[in-house]
Amino acid sequence: MKATINPHSNNIDTEDNKPVIVIEHLHKRFGYKKVLNDFNLIVERNKNVVVLGKSGSGKSVLIKCIIGLLKPDSGNINVFGDNIPKLGEDELDQARAKIGFLFQSNALYDSMTIRENLEFPLKRHWVEIADDEVNRLVAESLENVGLAHTSGLMPSELSGGMLKRIALARTMILKPEVILYDEPTTGLDPVTSREIEDLIIALQKKYHTSSIIISHDMNCVKRTADVVVLLLDGKCYAQGSFEELQLSEDQNIKQFFE
């Protein structure tokens, strides 16, 4: 049975209803394996959408298609009106300035200090940016994640939780309007996971971002999700609030909440 839950039911502000990401009929296959099979999704402004699914179900493929790291076989991915798969190299770079991506592995540049990690995207994107402004933005980003003292350290000198925070700071430094989180709490202890969840919520409130969060961690899902999407067989199998899906009798949905 397919759950038909309306994700728009709790919306109050009209501005919040405005879609920032619209995915239509997305298909992606690797060899004979169909990973995304007519996947559709709408993400609205100021909303956190959590995508749930089994390992290998295509969750990471989905967000990599959204950021343009993978090209879908067919379908549209509109982010602020730009159809990502159809964009040229330069237009894609411009579109990416509005999208942040937090990697599961953090993907910090290990040959650079924390400060250089944060400066790097800034100086690349805004070539004319003044040094004072760079300093201000780096300090602000580090303060946001509570790690102002790590500026001169190398990534190898930090713990897993600190690396995740720095990766989040780097993601936020370009002030993206949409953030894609690839399993942000995987591999972290419960306390650190909670801190990362708090950060995700706090940063969303502060910068009014919209997010797609890939996660298996049900605590993370419960705390961060405005809308939960269940990805099954390459399709959007169910969509609704955490509580709505939790109450579902559908066996495919229930197995995630047991």
Partner: peptide
């Protein structure tokens, strides 16, 4: 393999 190249790409760095 540590996705640093992907991280550059998503930051708009070629």
């Amino acid at each position: 393999v540590t996705e640093q190249i992907d991280a550059m790409e998503v930051s708009g760095i070629k």
